[in-house]
Amino acid sequence: MPTKTLWMEFRRDTFVNAIKQLKPQTKVKKFLTLELEISFNNGEACFDMGGLMKKIPASAEWDGYAVVPMNFIFSFTKIQPSNDPVRIEFIDQKFKIETSKVSSKWSAQSTFNRI
């Protein structure tokens, strides 16, 4: 578990477009329970929904994987973050975008089973 504030920044339009592309076209009840894994690798933010992944350019101090409820992330497709660039943070088991926070998990390795 991280003891310092971890952060990542990226352009608002690329963030919103990336998460829109992860959203299914039809409403599925199961979808509301899904989680998004957010990581950083080689200058890119990686948004992984169990194999469906979107990457966008980013800067960060982020050395692991935040696991965040999808419905929290998708709320930002309707009401976009006001800041550009968007800054996300993880501290004390909370994932934060601007003033919005949600309980989330942190892992040193991916939580998804990879083949």
Rank of each mutant, 00 (worst) to 15 (best):
P57L: 08
M53K: 11
W7Y: 15
K54P: 00
T3Y: 07
P85A: 11
G64M: 07
A18I: 06
N17W: 03
Q25E: 15
I91V: 12
A58N: 10
I88E: 02
K54H: 09
K55E: 05
A108C: 00
W62G: 05
I91D: 05
Y65T: 02
S110V: 04
G51K: 02
Y65A: 01
K30Y: 10
T5W: 00
K30G: 13
L36D: 02
S107V: 06
T111K: 11
A58M: 09
V16H: 05
R87H: 11
M70L: 15
N42S: 10
A18R: 02
C46W: 02
W62I: 11
T26L: 11
T99V: 12
A18V: 07
P2F: 01
D48A: 01
K29W: 11
A108H: 11
L36Q: 04
T14Q: 12
G50R: 03
A66T: 06
K101N: 08
T26D: 14
S59T: 15
V68R: 03
S110M: 04
Q109E: 13
T33L: 15
N71K: 13
T5P: 00
T5D: 07
T111P: 01
K4I: 12
S103Y: 12
L32V: 12
K78N: 14
W62P: 04
N41G: 00
P85R: 09
Q21F: 04
S107K: 06
L36I: 14
V68P: 01
E37Y: 01
R12A: 09
R11A: 15
E9W: 05
K78P: 01
G51W: 07
F72G: 04
V16F: 05
E9P: 03
L34T: 12
V28I: 15
M49P: 00
S110E: 04
S59N: 14
